[in-house]
Design a binder for these strands. Structure first.
Length: 962
RNA sequence: GCCCAGGUGGCGAAAUUGGUAAACGUUGCGGUCUCAGAAGCCGUUGGGAAUACCCUUGAGAGUUCGAGUCUCUCCCUGGGCACCA
């Protein structure tokens, strides 16, 4: 006699004998008789913890492999099924590498400083440390359920003093360094001071400054330097430090009350919250990432990252090669320096445009135009970033009354100001060539300025008065010594001539700007600086960590100072104010991969031994949205630490894989307007309806659970429904997974229903790792079914363990080795979706063969432990092993079994026949040795083989099926 | 506007170097088991044609004995950058 066991959706177990007529309707049919994943998964998670199975040591006898996930920010919402996608992939790869004899570092931690915890603190008064810790605890619970092989002993939290002590330490190193453009590396600021003491500063004549670092330091002699006050010296050195304080244009977000870095601003609004962002000039700590622009760009080539990721960084760095040209002012001593990538069009200049913020605007404006210019500049200044960006189509500008002289022709060229010229890029001034630049063209048209053609397109005439010809192809005309040259040659010739005559010089510009580093926020690392007599002074290293002080409120002070100004008696030595801004979110994440190597070290950020052993991340998995933020900053800090001799590698991660986002599938119901009646999806067009999002957990495969819906919200308690086929069918839409759309699916609920192994395999099965895809559970039963069938291979009909020690047959071995070979390939190239299929195919074949042979099941189970570690461990134990399966070796495949029954099928090419593709037909290896046959030989060769099917296209055998 | 990735059945997708397109899963349909629901198991599921034939990888051309894969043009979707001179 057998009985049925069903489970209520809520998790209440109930046993039903067959003659019972009352049944529990199943949400998810699960037969606990067989594969009891709940017991198995709990057992092994406990067991792994007890045995410290995944503890990692710096074992020099094995090759190392470092698999890293981008650590999560622990938000209050907990994990949804999208979060673990990358973690599962990295876990499979880490387990695979471990089984292949590597010593694998696979850690996890938390990026724990950040805005949401602080916003929550402002609203509720709860300390961010407290809520962050709660969120971390919740994350850990969720992560533990999925069966990851993280070494939790190495966990890091960026908000803990023993971690941010070293973030502050790195800040101090940056503060104490400058970038030498000659040696192309960061060096101790002492070397610069030594130069100043002995020879002063010669401006551009100093080779180490001929790079692209911008500063406004006037030349001085050694005597002058030695006579400067401490404050003056400090001010000058600030222009060279890697971490520096300066008056700078920043992205100010009034709603968030803080400054944002460029990558934190999207389309003129803050990435977090979507609040407007303005330009504001204020004292600001910055990181001189621009010094590394060229190296950050160049070193991308050697990285094993996707092209799109590298391109995103290339775009962001935005290198453009061109030249600066100085235009002498007509009635002043000064010059207007412009930057252009098209010096070949210099004879087409009809005016020069300055950015409204340009410092020369005030100087050159004539009295006649002063009022108009002031008005224009004022309007421009008061516009927010967003307004300015939204407004790109309107042409605006103002003549200053001033003229410059064309360097080659001496012609008078009017000086305008225009919003379309950006203060922060190049020199903040452009030479306008309306014939060959569409923006200049629009400006010229609008203000009736002359348009000259200086480039002749190859395919004949272009009417530049109607439209500018921007292409970098053609021949120079109306251009004196450039006439007849094509664009490329003309650019070279023009630069040569400009340099020779001293009008300017070839120059490389980057779009990349220095990164704003101070945040007017509480929940971040304090910047280890205090102000002694107005001089920003670093703490000494043994004074670290500078611990985040307590404050009464997390808001700015009444006078607008950052929250840290509220901290009572928080002064250096009881007398000097500390810096009140804190570090941005990206600070802690810019070096965490190093801390995992030696997370508990009290004396240094990580010991030299550990760093030399682990070196860098071999495989880094995370979201593509970090392309221009985290991934650029972590490369920057890595290069810096390399320069100052602290680490042996220049790049944080050799290989980067971006996992695609898992979107939510929102479910919609249709309420007939003005009623409380809901109409099913298929019939909604017959009514005037409004779509409402409903909780996806109330919907099973588009069918709404009406009873649950009624209890969901009080207003739906007496709702009525128009059904189709007796069901209420919901509409669906793919949207970002968020509470707002009620489409969040938790990994916990999937683990409860199907188990962690099913969740792991299903997330992989969903599609290619790097692709964005909506979450749906349509296929999850297929994956779950696979695991049950796999379980059944080891058990008889009564669920008794039953594995045979007989030798495996050839077809069984063939199935095994085919699967192993494919798994090696699938996992190596991170095609985990096909990896799941490979297991399924093998399982199907073995089921068909009724194979329960140890010789086949043992190796396959080791392979399965990468994807589904819990069930694999359980079966491994049942197979009589007392050791954890993690101690095994990933089974190698044996070509012999594959070769024995397959051959390369012949294809005739130009009268010769070649063997191209391996097809299994059961021929002897001797047949395969022949590489080339004529058509006649094939006929002979086939004799006696009785092929089932031979497809012959005139004179050509396409395929043979035996 | 510039740069990148992609477009294959009802759906998620596979095809790794140019070699039988649609593996694997799901959905639908049919069957089996059952007093019965569910699960399980078996068959079938790109299109057309009365069988073993033909057509089919966004569109069009090209290279090749052979193209989802390579080249060119175009269309569409997603992503990045953007008055960056």
């Amino acid at each position: 006699m057998h009985f049925w066991l069903h489970v209520l959706k809520q998790g209440n177990d109930a046993i039903h004998l067959p003659n019972f007529r009352t049944f529990v309707v199943l949400e998810t049919p699960v037969n606990y008789m067989e594969y009891d994943f709940r017991a198995i998964e709990k057992k092994w998670q406990d067991e792994w913890r007890k045995r410290n199975t995944y503890r990692v040591t710096d074992d020099n006898s094995k090759p190392k492999f470092y698999v890293l996930d981008m650590f999560p920010y622990p938000s209050g919402a907990g994990l949804h099924v999208g979060h673990p996608l990358g973690f599962i992939a990295s876990d499979i790869y880490a387990r695979y590498k471990r089984l292949n004899g590597f010593n694998v570092l696979h850690p996890m931690g938390y990026d724990a400083f950040g805005l949401p915890a602080e916003q929550y603190a402002i609203q509720t008064g709860r300390h961010p440390a407290e809520t962050t810790q709660e969120n971390i605890t919740r994350y850990r619970e969720q992560l533990d359920k999925i069966g990851f092989s993280f070494d939790w002993d190495r966990q890091v939290k960026t908000c803990e003093p023993n971690y941010y002590k070293w973030t502050q330490w790195i800040f101090l190193q940056l503060f104490k360094s400058w970038y030498n453009c000659k040696s192309k590396k960061a060096e101790s600021i002492d070397t610069l001071i030594a130069v100043f003491q002995s020879e002063g500063f010669k401006g551009e004549a100093h080779e180490f400054l001929t790079g692209d670092i911008e500063h406004d330091v006037q030349p001085f002699t050694a005597e002058a330097w030695n006579g400067f006050s401490e404050k003056e010296k400090s001010g000058i050195l600030m222009n060279f430090r890697m971490a520096y304080l300066s008056e700078a244009w920043v992205n100010w977000c009034p709603q968030l009350g803080t400054v944002l870095a460029n990558d934190e601003v999207k389309d003129g609004v803050s990435e977090r919250g979507g609040y407007p962002v303005e330009r504001k000039r204020m004292p600001q700590w910055s990181m001189r990432i621009t010094a590394y622009a060229d190296r950050l760009l160049k070193d991308l080539d050697a990285l094993d990252w996707t092209e799109s990721m590298k391109d995103a960084q290339r775009n962001w760095i935005g290198k453009s090669e061109g030249t600066s040209i100085r235009f002498k002012l007509e009635k002043h001593d000064g010059v207007v320096e412009v930057f252009t990538t098209r010096p070949d069009t210099v004879f087409g200049v009809s005016f020069v445009t300055l950015a409204p913020e340009h410092e020369l605007v005030n100087v050159v404006t004539t009295d006649e135009y002063r009022a108009a210019v002031d008005a224009y500049v004022n309007v421009a200044k008061n516009k927010s970033e967003r307004e300015r960006q939204a407004d790109v189509k309107t042409v605006s500008g103002q003549f200053t009354g001033a003229y410059v002289l064309h360097p080659f022709t001496g012609a008078r060229v009017p000086v305008w100001i225009g919003e379309y010229v950006l203060a922060g890029y190049g020199t903040g001034a452009v030479m306008a060539v309306p014939g060959h630049d569409s923006r200049d063209h629009a400006f010229a048209k609008h203000f009736g300025l002359p348009i000259t053609q200086v480039i002749q397109p190859k395919d004949g005439a272009a009417d530049v008065t109607a439209q500018s010809y921007d292409d970098k192809e053609g021949t120079c005309i109306n251009s004196d010594f450039l006439n007849g040259l094509d664009v490329k040659a003309a650019i070279r010739r023009a630069i040569e001539e400009i340099e020779k005559r001293g009008f300017g010089k070839g120059k490389i510009n980057f779009r990349l700007r220095d990164a704003a580093f101070g945040r007017q926020r509480y929940w971040g690392e304090p910047i280890p600086i205090y102000y002694k007599d107005g001089i920003p002074t670093p703490l000494s290293e043994n004074e670290l960590p500078l611990v985040l002080p307590e404050v009464d409120k997390f808001l700015p002070t009444e006078t607008g100072e950052p929250p840290l100004a509220r901290a009572k008696d928080w002064k250096y030595n009881g007398q000097y104010d500390y810096e009140w801004t804190t570090m941005p979110g990206w600070a802690g994440s810019s070096w965490y991969f190093l801390r995992y190597m030696d997370p508990k070290n009290e004396n240094t950020f990580a010991s030299a031994d550990a760093i030399n052993y682990w070196k860098q991340v071999d495989l880094y998995i995370g979201g593509a949205e970090h392309a221009t933020g985290h991934l650029l900053y972590v490369r920057f800090w890595t290069k810096f630490l390399y320069d100052i001799g602290k680490i042996p590698v220049e790049e944080p991660a050799k290989k980067l894989v971006n996992q695609g986002m898992i979107q939510g599938t929102s479910q919609l119901v249709y309420r007939i307007n003005g009623t409380n009646e809901f109409v099913s999806f298929g019939l909604r067009k017959e009514h005037d309806t409004t779509a409402l999002h409903v909780d996806v957990n109330m919907v099973d495969n588009t069918v709404l659970d009406i009873e649950r819906f009624k209890t969901w919200r009080p207003e739906f308690a007496d709702a009525t429904f128009i059904l189709e086929d007796g069901k209420y069918i919901c509409g669906s839409e793919v949207e970002k997974m968020s509470k707002r759309w009620h489409n969040v699916v938790n990994p916990d609920s999937v683990c409860d229903q199907y188990g962690a192994d099913t969740l792991r395999m299903y997330e992989m099965f969903l599609g290619p790792l790097d692709q964005a895809k909506p979450w749906n559970t349509n296929g999850i039963s297929g994956v779950h079914n696979f695991l049950r069938r796999y379980w059944r291979l080891f058990h008889d009909a009564q669920n008794n363990f039953s594995v045979s020690d007989e030798a495996a047959s050839k077809p069984e071995l063939k199935t095994l080795h085919k699967a192993l070979k494919k798994l090696h390939e699938d996992i190596e190239r991170m095609a985990f979706n096909t990896g799941v299929s490979t297991f399924m195919i093998a399982c199907n074949e073995l089921t068909d063969l009724k194979c329960n042979k140890r010789a086949v099941l043992e190796p396959l189970t080791i392979a399965l432990s990468t994807f589904a570690p819990h069930i694999a461990e359980e079966l491994w134990e049942k197979l009589g092993h007392s050791n954890s399966i993690t101690a095994e070796t990933f089974p190698a495949f044996d070509e012999q079994y594959l070769a024995e029954s397959s051959f390369d099928y012949p294809v005739q090419i130009n009268g010769k026949v070649r063997f191209k593709q391996t097809v299994a037909v059961g021929l002897s290896p001797a047949d395969i040795e022949k590489e080339v046959m004529t058509g006649e030989e094939i006929q002979k060769w086939l004799e006696g083989k009785a092929p089932k099917k031979v497809i012959v296209v005139p004179n050509r055998i396409i395929n043979i099926v035996v």
